[in-house]
């Protein structure tokens, strides 16, 4: 066997290994992108629930217009930011913008909750109660989705930064992914909707 043959075999093996690493990176990348889209799905679900909640509240407390409008506006903004970020999950700036929009939505929801606390008949409404259950579960899902996203990003980044993979990653343009960092602690707190 000539040296040429051996070199060829080594080259083919190296190439095969490279392909394997590349595929693994693709798998992980898709996984974390999918995880991000889960956040998106759950956030959308939440954005859909919020108008319903506002509508029910509107029946009882129409005069608290400022708060209700604020909630709806914040919701619209967050929904828009979410769509933009979902379109391009790798970009860190967009995720940051979403986090900010989420924060102001959280603040607005907090105000709405204070309003709801003041009206016992609103608190007693059954539709609102069901919506509350939905919203609580969705809040959980949002945080779980974020967590799953972080886990997936961690796995991807670990994979990407380890030795042989880092070569493939750098040549094939696998960028480092961002963790979903909340701007401050407030956003990490779930929106509390408490009735009775």
């Amino acid at each position: 066997m000539g040296i040429g043959t051996i070199l060829l075999i080594v080259l083919v093996l190296l190439l095969a290994y490279g392909v394997m690493v590349y595929n693994r990176l693709v798998t992980h990348k898709n996984r974390f992108e999918n995880a991000f889209s889960q956040i998106d799905v759950q956030l959308q679900r939440r954005y859909e629930l919020i108008p319903n909640l506002v509508e029910v509240a509107n029946k009882y407390v129409a005069h608290e217009k400022d708060t209700l409008t604020e909630v709806i506006e914040a919701r619209n903004q967050a929904s828009k930011a979410c769509k933009e970020a979902a379109a391009n999950p790798g970009e860190s700036g967009l995720v940051g913008a979403l986090a900010k929009a989420e924060q102001s939505l959280g603040n607005a929801m907090g105000k709405l909750n204070l309003v709801v606390e003041d009206y016992p008949e609103l608190k007693a409404d059954e539709t609102l109660r069901d919506l509350h259950d939905e919203l609580t579960s969705t809040e959980n899902r949002v945080s779980y989705a974020r967590q799953a996203y972080s886990d997936a990003v961690m796995r991807y980044n670990t994979e990407r930064e380890q030795f042989p993979a880092v070569v493939v990653a750098n040549t094939c343009n696998f960028n480092e992914a961002d963790l979903f960092e909340a701007a401050n602690d407030e956003i990490r707190e779930p929106v509390k909707v408490k009735f009775g």
Binding site: R31, N34, A35, D133, N140, R141, Y144, Q147, A148, A152
Partner: peptide, 11 residues
């Protein structure tokens, strides 16, 4: 709800 939530958490 819980099953769905953990489903999200575990992808």
């Amino acid at each position: 709800n819980i099953v769905d939530e953990i489903g999200v958490a575990s992808a």
